[in-house]
Write a protein that binds this DNA or RNA. Sequence first.
DNA 1: CATGAATGAGAATTCATTCAT
DNA 2: GATGAATGAATTCTCATTCAT
Lengths: 205, 205, 205, 205
Amino acid sequence: MNERSATTLIPETARGSEAAILNAALEAFGEKGFYGASMRDVARGAKTSLSNLYNYFPAKSDLLAALLRMANDELLNRIQEAVGAAGKRPADRMSAAVRAHVRFVVEHQVASLVALSEIRYLTGAVRKRVVAARDSTQGIYEELVAEGAAAGDFLTPYPDDAARNIVSMVSAISTWYRAGGRLNAEELGGQHARYALALLEAPLD
Amino acid sequence: MNERSATTLIPETARGSEAAILNAALEAFGEKGFYGASMRDVARGAKTSLSNLYNYFPAKSDLLAALLRMANDELLNRIQEAVGAAGKRPADRMSAAVRAHVRFVVEHQVASLVALSEIRYLTGAVRKRVVAARDSTQGIYEELVAEGAAAGDFLTPYPDDAARNIVSMVSAISTWYRAGGRLNAEELGGQHARYALALLEAPLD
Amino acid sequence: MNERSATTLIPETARGSEAAILNAALEAFGEKGFYGASMRDVARGAKTSLSNLYNYFPAKSDLLAALLRMANDELLNRIQEAVGAAGKRPADRMSAAVRAHVRFVVEHQVASLVALSEIRYLTGAVRKRVVAARDSTQGIYEELVAEGAAAGDFLTPYPDDAARNIVSMVSAISTWYRAGGRLNAEELGGQHARYALALLEAPLD
Amino acid sequence: MNERSATTLIPETARGSEAAILNAALEAFGEKGFYGASMRDVARGAKTSLSNLYNYFPAKSDLLAALLRMANDELLNRIQEAVGAAGKRPADRMSAAVRAHVRFVVEHQVASLVALSEIRYLTGAVRKRVVAARDSTQGIYEELVAEGAAAGDFLTPYPDDAARNIVSMVSAISTWYRAGGRLNAEELGGQHARYALALLEAPLD
DNA sequence: CATGAATGAGAATTCATTCAT
DNA sequence: GATGAATGAATTCTCATTCAT
């Protein structure tokens, strides 16, 4: 429960109770959904008092927003890093993005699931910010697709909506993935990279 | 809101109040989510009393289950019909399935959205039945993929997980589609059929 | 469920549905208590519609009242008959009363239990009538005690409250009796008759 | 209503609100019965909010169970003390038990009434514990009867069921006792002690 | 007599949030 | 920061009862 990968979701600025609260919230929202989980559940999971939660997050939705923002930041970072480290060829860059994305979803499955399914419960300004962050992730894919299309590497007649569909596929992994399945994270990344490139009608080498 | 296509979601056996309740529930769950919508909301929408709701559906989750069952039945029927009417070539059959599926999602966007995002709030036997129904839809795709792979028409090295990814893409349409967008329903169907066949690495004619 | 002893609780004037309703109510109140049982339970048990109940009994409490009145009438009759058939000696008359009373409680255990524990849920005029009926049963015992005391057959220094205590003991049988126990109905009657006479300090012959 | 005897029902551990809630519940259940009284009634009586009730007792039945447990504990203590302080003669010990029991019923009439009539509304594990506690009180009487029978002091041919009947009599006091009646608590205790010994056929000295 | 549909009032319970300390 | 106690508003669900037919 407490062990997270080196590149953790909860940033180092979140110390002590705050980190515990965020982790507990992640777990609770993952298990029961945003509405299904109560602040009491979160407090219990964080081993602090119900009222102390409100010292850190003045509203339940702020907790969700914080979680979603962190998840997206981390995802964005990872994809950007991966793309940056990849070569110049659009297919390679796309492949790197998908592999990094899949790895994130598998490593942070709960956070990914929450991000996928609980955004709808945010409203107002908070929602806007979170949606924008999510869209910026999709934006990377759109750029990658545009690059490849411009370069003549992706032949699909529908480059405009392809990015969204790739993101849909990869995000959906969070809804069904179980550790110990037929494919491990690495293989799953390779598989989805191939699906993505095929969808984009990128000719095989 | 009350206008539904010829092939409607609410079956003819649901008369008067029951149909009104189901429609109101669909609208409410679509707008606020299963938890976010209250039985009062549904009653108000159906123009009946809160208590009368319970004469038709003894629990809120039964309402959701009824909705999901209907949506899935209709979807299943449409896909099966479309596949039946298609020719023998696997690519054509897959294409027909996707087109019918997309048309359903667009025509019953709210129901599709609810089916995609609210299943998680069902539990127990009710959940089991609904999940089984959903899986049987995916089963059709799996068969189609297997046929095409066996026939050498789909060259993807990963036929086993392709069906799931196609379903993910098409289902996700319910989360972003807005009437009056760049593509109409028909074009969207064509687009996604092509995405699907590309993903399956079906050679163009 | 439908078999009742020759001397049944439900009078012959109650035909068809009415008798079914009364029996269903008795069963329901016995099992779940007056508040715990719903009119729906009663309707279901009587195999009639909820609304039809109200053609016979305009309120739930009327159902209870009818039941209690019948139970008490039958009990009263039986005790009076038994006492009338007994000889002249106060001890014999008391003994006969107790034996008849015990027999009634055993034969109509549920009705007796309901009469003992649900009277409190009646109010107003209905309650008054039922309480008066119950008291008239106790009145018989009081007369019997007074007779015996006057005749010098009951030596207890507290004849005034003895009747109530005898009734308490016998009524309480309904709370614990189970068919097939150590003693059968007849023996239980003999036992309680002896308890009663001992309590009254009636010298053994 | 708020005045309780030195040996009170509500234990010292119950501070402030909790004691107020318990007392209010006792009053409400006594007046309207477990089903007839609502949690709102209790909250009103305890001068706290409805929701705050649930901070102390997570379910209505827990409130009832707490009440019954306390009443029985106190009763048990009192009887045990009284028996312990009595001499060795079985008749004296029985007499002491009955007197203490009667005193308790009179002093805590409402609690006794509730204990007598509302146990049936408990279910599951909670019920089991409360029933066991109640039975342990009756167990004391059974021992006392057995002692006296073995010593040849109680001549009744039915010692086995005598204890239950004595308890029935004494418990029933809660259903009819009114302060200011013909006999005061002390006299009532003496009377019932005599009834009990007579019932056991204990020869007068 | 009998029914199916409907309803208003109220029940227990939950929960996000606040406040005094 | 941290806590325990408290609360108001809402939620799901139940139920006696009524009404049109």
